Simulated assay, not measured.
Amino acid sequence: MKRLNVDENSLAVWAVILIVAVIIWFVLEVIAEWGIFQKAGEKGWKALIPVYDVYVSHKIVGMSHIWFILEVIAWVIESVFLGLTAIPEWIDIAFGIPVAIITVTSAVIHAVKLCDCFGKGFAFKVGVILLPSVFSMIIAFGKAEYRKPKA
C-alpha cells in the first residue's frame, strides 16, 4: 500500500486556509444576522454579542423564551460536561442525546418561523434548514420584508 507523503509545509498551508475560511464564514454569518436584525427593527450591533444575538433572534421570530432557556442549558451541558474526557459513556449518552435533540429542534423551529416572518414558502424553509448561511444572506439583503409574527 502506497503511503501519502505530506510534508509539514503543506499541512500548515491547509491549516491557514481552513482558519481563513472559518473566519470568512463567521463574518458572513454576522453580516447576515445584522441585516435580518435591521429589517426586523432591531439594532444591527446586537448580532455581535454572543448568546444575546440568539435571544434577539428568537424574539424577532416569536419563539418562546423557553426555547432560549433550553438552548442555554444545552450549551452549558455541552460545554462543561460533554467536553470532559473522563466521564462515563452512559453520562455522555444521557446528556448528549437530549442536547442534540434540543439544539436541532430549536434550529428547525427558528428557521421555519424566520421564513414565516419574511413571507417565504416551503422550498425556502428547506433551504434555510439545509444551507442557513446562504439563505440568511438572501433574507437579509433580498427584497423580503419583515412581518411581525403572530402571537
Rank of each mutant, 00 (worst) to 15 (best):
residue 82 L to I: 00
residue 19 I to G: 14
residue 54 V to C: 06
residue 35 G to P: 09
residue 65 H to Q: 04
residue 93 I to W: 12
residue 7 D to Q: 08
residue 141 F to C: 03
residue 140 A to R: 09
residue 5 N to M: 11
residue 55 Y to G: 00
residue 102 I to V: 10
residue 100 A to G: 09
residue 115 C to M: 07
residue 39 K to T: 13
residue 100 A to N: 15
residue 63 M to W: 01
residue 129 I to H: 04
residue 133 S to C: 12
residue 110 H to W: 13
residue 57 S to P: 08
residue 99 V to T: 03
residue 35 G to A: 14
residue 124 F to R: 06
residue 85 T to C: 13
residue 109 I to W: 04
residue 36 I to G: 01
residue 135 F to T: 01
residue 96 G to Y: 01
residue 26 F to N: 08
residue 77 I to N: 11
residue 21 A to N: 12
residue 131 L to V: 06
residue 39 K to I: 12
residue 94 A to W: 05
residue 134 V to N: 08
residue 150 K to N: 04
residue 149 P to H: 07
residue 3 R to D: 14
residue 142 G to E: 02
residue 34 W to L: 05
residue 148 K to Q: 14
residue 46 K to N: 06
residue 7 D to F: 15
residue 113 K to T: 01
residue 96 G to P: 11
residue 48 L to R: 14
residue 61 V to C: 05
residue 31 I to C: 11
residue 129 I to F: 08
residue 33 E to Q: 11
residue 8 E to P: 02
residue 93 I to Y: 10
residue 30 V to T: 07
residue 63 M to D: 01
residue 97 I to N: 12
residue 15 A to S: 02
residue 120 K to F: 09
residue 111 A to I: 06
residue 27 V to E: 01
residue 26 F to S: 09
residue 141 F to T: 06
residue 12 A to W: 14
residue 71 E to R: 08
residue 32 A to G: 11
residue 104 V to P: 00
residue 92 D to K: 08
residue 61 V to K: 02
residue 129 I to C: 03
residue 127 G to W: 01
residue 61 V to F: 05
residue 97 I to R: 09
residue 26 F to I: 08
residue 16 V to H: 12
residue 129 I to R: 03
residue 106 S to Y: 12
residue 119 G to I: 06
residue 62 G to P: 02
